[in-house]
Design a protein around this nucleic acid. Sequence first.
RNA 1: CGGGGCGUAGCACAGCCUGGUAGUGCGCACGGUUUGGGACCGUGAGGCCGCAAGUUCGAAUCUUGCCGCCCCGACCA
Length: 490
Amino acid sequence: MSKALPKRSENYSEWYNEIVKRADLAENSAVRGCMVIKPYGFAIWEKMQRGLDDMFKATGHQNAYFPLFVPKSFLEKEEEHAEGFAKECAVVTHYRLKKNPDGPGLIVDPAAKLEEELIVRPTSEAIIWNAYRGWIQSWRDLPILVNQWANIVRWEMRTRIFLRTAEFLWQEGHTAHATKEEAVEETERMLGVYADFAENWIALPVIRGYKSPAERFAGAEETYCIEAMMQDGKALQCGTSHFLGQNFAKAFDVKFVNKENELEHPWATSWGVSTRLMGALIMAHSDDNGLVLPPKLAPIQVVIVPIHRSPEDLAEITAVVDPIVEKLKAAGVSVKYDDSDNQRSGWKFAEYELKGVPVRLALGKRDLEAGTIEVARRDTLTKESRPLEGIVEHVQELMSEIQANIYAKAAKFREEHTFRVDTWDEFVERIEEGAFLLAHWDGTAETEENIKEQTKATIRCIPLDAPHEEGKCILTGNPSHRRVVFARAY
RNA sequence: CGGGGCGUAGCACAGCCUGGUAGUGCGCACGGUUUGGGACCGUGAGGCCGCAAGUUCGAAUCUUGCCGCCCCGACCA
């Protein structure tokens, strides 16, 4: 194994794949397009889950669980939805195997054919709204604010670990409301939760916006999203929140009696983020030395490495380190004291850098004599020697400083790669460099499609805060009232 | 589904063209010397050479078929 990672500037996707592999986050599995998430990677995902779940609970949601399988007849009910997902469904047709009568191994038992095929959920609107029919009778039953953590399957033609896998983990919120206003408000609230999480936990600045009709979720009336920029200037959709109108209520015949004793269909939302966020985390912050983790998501926030020659030296160092470890733990900092003797300190330094541990403390004989400790920051790759006194407080401060710095760095990068463009030539040139382009669009699907064909750039979103501004469409010159965000995307 | 690449030790690969004792590096085990940014020496363990059929006295190597994975496109969170 070569020591150095590939460089971002030379081969971005190879760099990404190597980080995933070498930082022990995940690996490809024996099953095409499906990944194995390894313990270190899963620990990060668990931190994301915890952070998000707390936010869902704080906004009044409860967790529940629905089946992995969706009867085909359910998926068919909402027509647009069915059409959107039909091309990427895994289908269960049989429920039994038997010994192969003509040779070794097992075969599918033809006698065990299912009367109706079961679809492995690509998303759960259908199975959930079928259940909601039984849950909702009166306006008093609303709103229903439910979330589920689950795995789903979308049979993608081409997969990339974390960014697009055939099976992935996510959460999907599914809510039902008595009024349209309330449902829209919920859709926007959850977009806000996602943006908050992205910015304050992943340290990833995002653009809040809504999708053009062409990019909308199949079956939604409006799709809101958060979009982030990766270090190659490409966009990654990090979360979506859909206003579903009454489409699913109608398709599944869900009705409630309002206060005036009239029958109505409830209004729906759904919203989700997935293990793709792991990909966002990696691609947004990491460098040519490896992963860079924001402290809030780092499974190990501080690693302490002893530098010693003899077991006696180590014992002396450990005596000084132990109380520091205790104090850091008491302060809520997750810390690892790596006193293993199978690797040398230099090896450990490189290893924890690769794994993105935000702060490294190193303590050797020289420090013992001087009453100091070496503090190294992963985000800036700087080191300094500090007095032992007050080190716990200093580390605590560093946690928030690093969190803020990583965010600022990503925000600066995005700013430097975002341009307002008004001519087609500049558009074509800039998009090639990797950038977000704020440009006018005439609002038609034809133009959107033409731009995509010519440049591979898509409309990432129409920003919620886009000011009204008269202009001319970047391609057709037709009138436009605001700028939208164009970029190439993952 | 189209184009390209690759399947040989835990990992990365050489050997294949020109058939004849299965190799190198890393990792692993043990011993020693080392230790402030990925140490070194010695000894050792570890292989149905992706699967199947064929050619041959003999196949990792030649032929055919199959399977799998990765990368680039079309599709997508």
